[in-house]
Structures are given as structure tokens and as C-alpha cells.
Simulated scan of single mutants.
Amino acid sequence: MPIDAAKALAAEPRTAEIGWDSRDVQLYHLGIGAGRPATDPAELRYTLESRLQVLPSFATVAGTGAPGGLSALSLPGVEVDLARILHGGQSLTLHRPLPAQGRATATGRLAALYDKGKAAVLVLRTDVSDAEGPLWTNDSQIFLRGEGGFGGERGPSTRLEPPTGAPEQVVERPIREDQALLYRLSGDWNPLHADPEFARLAGFDRPILHGLCSYGMTLKAVVDTLLDGDVTRVRSYSTRFAGVVFPGETLRIRLWRQEGSVRAAVSAVERDDAPVLADTFVRYA
């Protein structure tokens, strides 16, 4: 079905009340590989309720069903086939540190719609506030394969010049065989990450890991190695999903510290450093 850009962009924002608690936070942290070694004090900050801090990327799953995420893809003027969706990029702005439990109002809308020729790109924005004010803003860039050519604007290029020089840190993070099955319990039920038959329909020989799982694993590596384990220093975090990664592989995370920010490049070790995340920035205080 052709995209009706005018109808999609004119759609009213959607608002929902969301909530989360420490169990949701702990499950998310386990889903991105926290808790290894289980008794490490640095890991207990992510897994033990009495010491719990919240990695900012939890905002991508907090209050599953919030109106601006992948669950919002049933938009007026846009018909979506889950087998043709690719998550192209993600950006997160923190307005203040995330609490381990809370209730908030999430307002989601289609912020932009671009025509890339062979694909359409949706930019889905979610603004989340609680009684004390704004908490975070999430932007998801979603590629709809085969849905371009509707005559819309092509949109800006998001490609950045790669960092130069040797990285300050190189971190490797193994991905468990069941990592996608655990991560999806935080709310992304796309069968692409669990069902082999569905994955084959989408062009993959087996289920792939959620891009947002790699996204969370990378932010945790940045916090743990370059930000003294202090999640409250993160101000914003953005990436472009450059390629897939499969459960059972290993992420190689290269980090370059710049003034007030960290650049990261993430690849899959077992496939000759095939790119996974690119154009990745963490801004910090």
C-alpha cells in the first residue's frame, strides 16, 4: 500500500500513561548482559534492588507500549509489514537521571517521514514527563523496506566521519545464545528475534539480536569503562544501526574519548569485525 505522507504527518500525537518498577529495570539490565560476574560489586549496581541505578538506555523500553516506539507503527497513511522493518537508528536525550520506579506520561508522534527511494524512513519521537517535569526524549528511525518512491523529501544524511587514531579503550562483550529471548521480555516481541521461520522470511538464516540490545550493551560499556560507572553523567546517546549481530557472537566496542563526549564503533568479532553500530555518540557531564 503506498504511503500517504500528508495523512501520516498530520496524525494527532498519541498519549499514554506508563509506569515501571525496579523489576523492569533489573530485567532490562539482565537482557543487555549485566550481572556477569554475578557477585561483582560493579554489576550489582545493575541487578540488586538495594543498590540499583538505571542505565539511561532503559528509556527505550520503559513502560512498554509507549506511543512513540515500534508499537506505534500502525499509523494513519502507513501500512507496515513487520518482516520489512529495519531499525535504522536511535537517539536519546536525558533531561534528568531516570528513577528506578515511576509513572509518567508519554507523548508519541511521527516527527518526520523521508523517501529514500527503495525505502521509507519514519522518525518516531516520544517525549516523556512525570510530575516533576520532562524525563527523556527518544527518537527512533525506522526503515520500511520497499515503501519508498512516494514522492517525499529524501531527508538529511546521518553519516559522520569515522574517528581517527587508536581508540582509548577496546571492550569485548560476549552475547549469550539466549540473549534475544531474554531481552524481548522487556517488550519487543517482533518474531524476527526469536522465530527461525520468520527470520528466514525476513532474509536472515536465523533470528538476529535486537538492535536496541546492542545499543544498551554499548552504553553500559561506555559507562563502566570511561564514566566511572556513573549512569547519571550521560546526557544523550545516539547511534546508527549499521548491521546485524547474532546471538552467540561477540561485540567488539572501540571507544574514543573527546571533549564532553565518547565516540564508539561496534562490530561483530566472529565476522571479521562486520559493522554493528556506527556514528555512535555518548555526550556526558
Score class of each variant (00 low, 15 high):
residue 3 I to F: 01
residue 3 I to A: 03
residue 4 D to I: 00
residue 5 A to Q: 14
residue 5 A to I: 05
residue 26 Q to G: 10
residue 26 Q to D: 05
residue 26 Q to Y: 03
residue 37 P to F: 15
residue 38 A to Y: 09
residue 50 S to V: 06
residue 58 F to W: 10
residue 62 A to V: 12
residue 62 A to P: 04
residue 66 A to G: 08
residue 70 L to G: 08
residue 74 S to Y: 00
residue 75 L to R: 07
residue 77 G to I: 00
residue 78 V to E: 02
residue 84 R to K: 12
residue 88 G to P: 05
residue 89 G to Q: 04
residue 101 Q to T: 15
residue 103 R to F: 10
residue 107 T to W: 03
residue 115 D to E: 12
residue 124 L to T: 14
residue 131 A to E: 15
residue 132 E to G: 09
residue 138 N to Q: 11
residue 141 Q to C: 01
residue 143 F to V: 00
residue 144 L to Y: 10
residue 149 G to T: 06
residue 155 G to I: 01
residue 157 S to L: 04
residue 164 T to P: 00
residue 165 G to H: 06
residue 169 Q to Y: 07
residue 169 Q to C: 02
residue 175 I to E: 01
residue 183 Y to A: 07
residue 186 S to F: 11
residue 186 S to R: 04
residue 191 P to W: 13
residue 192 L to Q: 06
residue 194 A to F: 05
residue 196 P to I: 11
residue 213 C to N: 14
residue 216 G to S: 12
residue 219 L to H: 02
residue 226 L to T: 09
residue 233 R to E: 01
residue 235 R to M: 07
residue 235 R to H: 07
residue 243 G to R: 02
residue 246 F to I: 13
residue 246 F to Q: 03
residue 248 G to N: 02
residue 249 E to R: 09
residue 249 E to N: 12
residue 255 L to W: 10
residue 255 L to D: 02
residue 257 R to T: 11
residue 261 S to R: 15
residue 262 V to I: 13
residue 277 L to H: 08
residue 281 F to M: 12
